[in-house]
Amino acid sequence: MTVPQWGVRVPARQGEEMRQALIREGALDASLKLIRNGDLLILPVLEQREGAEWCEFEAHPGREPLPRHELVGGIAIMQDDDPDGAQKLLASRPSLHTVVFAEGEVHGEYRTREFRVLAGQSTTRTQVTEHGFTFNVDLAGAYFSARLSTERQRILVHVREGEVILDMFAGVGPFAITLARIASLVVASDINPKAIELMLENIAQNRAKNVLPMLADARHLDGIIPWQFDRVVMNLPLSGTEFLPAAFRLSRPGGTIHFYSLVSVEGEHVARIQELGGTVLSERVVRSYSPGQWHAVYDVRVGE
């Protein structure tokens, strides 16, 4: 029997890496078999995403689909308040220690979220490993998205030795610490004291000696920091637009801004970026967010 589902094509040599990334996101549909097509694999995913196509997959015989969830280290975040499903999920992977239900969306200037434990240990703290880095995370204390693992690697490819980078909304430091592998210096700012506390742990744990943490309101960074940056990362999807003028002032002429935002139409922020003197190099869908809304990233070149 075949089952229709979204699928993502990937070269076979990268198949396991992509499979593990999708598992970390909670995006892989583990009830379906992957498709092998020559040197390509098609991996089944639970929702539409950039590059996905509608395919016919074979079901794994006797394998019951697990409840929809996102994995963050040893914690599974369920999309439904389902205690029975949480117990089934907890038993599905030895690496899981907690299953939670998110009782609201990310909110407030600290970008926090409320969770209720449905199964396992009573904690929202875990460790996340991605691409050779290990991050301490507290889901209720500071923002972290495992779904941006691929984005961190995408930007890393474009970083050149000697770059000075600003992460305006750094959270626990995953972008900053990843990019510090090549950059000369990364300034990692956040307004949330808990985020900075976890970031300090992660800087030490990953031996990232060229990351400078800064507890600050991004609105005032251009009055605090006396220099301009080669690259600015703006991962504040819900309200990042209001910080775009500050990001431009903090960028050197010819520098790059990676601006993440929730959008409901293609090109939603292009006019504002052009008003500020920027050129949109690309606009990409990172993931779907809700019906009619998606998480996008604009790669922007700052005017000379």
Results as ranks from 00 to 15, higher is better:
233 V>Y: 10
139 L>P: 04
161 E>Q: 12
46 L>H: 07
119 A>C: 10
30 A>W: 07
43 L>E: 00
134 T>K: 09
13 R>I: 12
16 E>T: 14
284 R>I: 13
167 D>N: 05
84 D>W: 08
20 Q>F: 03
269 H>W: 14
50 E>C: 03
21 A>M: 02
256 T>E: 11
9 R>W: 06
41 L>S: 01
147 R>K: 10
298 Y>M: 06
99 V>W: 01
260 Y>K: 00
301 R>H: 10
40 L>T: 08
169 F>K: 04
20 Q>G: 00
5 Q>V: 01
147 R>V: 10
295 H>D: 15
244 L>M: 09
293 Q>V: 15
18 M>I: 04
147 R>I: 08
107 H>N: 10
48 Q>W: 11
264 S>W: 09
227 W>M: 08
255 G>M: 04
180 A>V: 03
115 F>H: 15
106 V>R: 05
281 L>N: 01
83 P>Y: 11
162 G>P: 08
262 L>N: 14
115 F>A: 10
172 V>E: 14
204 A>W: 05
147 R>G: 11
167 D>G: 06
136 N>V: 02
153 Q>R: 13
212 L>P: 02
225 I>N: 06
280 V>W: 02
96 L>I: 04
180 A>M: 03
75 I>G: 05
42 I>H: 02
99 V>Y: 05
162 G>M: 02
191 I>G: 07
73 G>S: 08
237 P>N: 12
304 E>F: 10
218 A>N: 06
243 F>N: 01
237 P>F: 07
94 P>L: 07
200 L>M: 15
36 R>H: 11
64 E>H: 01
251 S>Y: 04
